[in-house]
Design a binder for these strands. Structure first.
Length: 279
DNA sequence: AAGAAGTCCTGGGCGC
DNA sequence: TGCGCCCAGGACTTCT
């Protein structure tokens, strides 16, 4: 599950590999990578491979940015190629992969950018002005940026009746956390995922924010969690899975106190916590 | 109106 | 052994 540290690791790799390069060709094998899906069965975007290629071919990649879990390949046209990896998406620069849902080639380079994605949730699209893109415009603050207004965030959080786990996964409140780092952050600061936000005190907020920052920074320093399919821009695994305290460890002893870790379902999502360390 | 639940997908793990 | 069931989750839609 690519979350902020995984997407940021990919961003750094892509920026190093692709900044300054010009797109020479585009190959779309799975149309839905461009169109997305909706519950009505109709495509979210009505773009064709031809239209997509027309907007991308001959564009220079100025640099690669990230917003939350979205990757932004900034184009010389002023627009951006936006990508989301969702569950199993991979953006791997190398020889063409036969199973890639999409491939992008660059002038003077034999290798291509492969978009591989077994569960087919991931998407690629082009936005003329990414700041107005419907998927990005409501994203919350970046937790690793100095500009994150923690006290203001805490006030809004403490006004919510939802559970802490759900609130941390809400990208409008804070951008970039997924299930793994949300659970790790809650263990880090000793708060239960089932805890209702309106029971938090003002004193709970700084350790919570610090827990979020610490687990994200740690994940980034190990180049991301490669439990399943996550790979960086060169197809390499991360090592952060070896440093997780609770995710995927239900029924096993807590690394801090030895108590058996418990698993619960919150709004249809699994969460793991230590009943002794987390209050 | 906020919060919960359902939906998309498919490999893997489990039980019988 | 092999089949089938169910789980995993990010973002979006629909329901309550």
């Amino acid at each position: 599950m690519p979350e902020l540290p995984e997407v940021e690791t990919v961003r750094r790799g892509l920026d190093r590999l692709l900044a300054g390069r010009r797109v020479s060709r585009v190959f779309i094998r799975d149309l839905r990578v461009l169109q997305g899906f909706s519950l009505s069965g109709l495509p979210k975007r009505s773009v064709t491979p031809q239209g997509f290629e027309k907007n991308l071919r001959n564009q220079r990649i100025l640099r690669v940015d990230r917003r939350g879990k979205y990757l932004l390949l900034r184009l010389s046209s002023g627009g951006a190629l936006i990508g989301h990896l969702r569950m199993t998406g991979q953006l791997i620069y190398g020889p063409p992969h036969a199973e890639a849902r999409a491939q992008i080639g660059f002038e003077g380079l034999p290798d291509v950018l492969n978009f591989c994605d077994t569960r087919r949730f991931g998407e690629l699209w082009i936005s003329k002005d990414w700041t107005k893109d419907p998927s990005l415009k409501d994203l919350g603050p970046e937790p690793l940026r100095r500009e994150w207004d923690v006290p203001g965030w805490g006030v809004s959080l403490r006004a919510s009746h939802t559970r802490l786990h759900s609130a941390l996964l809400d990208q409008r409140r804070l951008a970039g956390l997924g299930n793994i780092y949300a659970m790790e952050a809650l263990f880090e600061c000793g708060l239960r995922p089932t805890r209702r936000c309106d029971t938090l005190t003002r004193r709970d907020i700084p350790p919570l924010a610090e827990g979020v920052r610490r687990v994200l920074t740690r994940g980034l320093s190990h180049r991301g969690v490669s439990f399943n399919s996550y790979r960086d821009a060169l197809g390499r695994k991360g090592q952060a899975q070896n440093h997780l305290m609770v995710y995927g460890r239900a029924g096993k002893p807590c690394n801090a106190c030895g108590t058996v870790l418990r698993s619960v379902r919150i709004s249809g999502r699994g969460a793991v916590f230590c009943p002794r360390c987390q209050k």
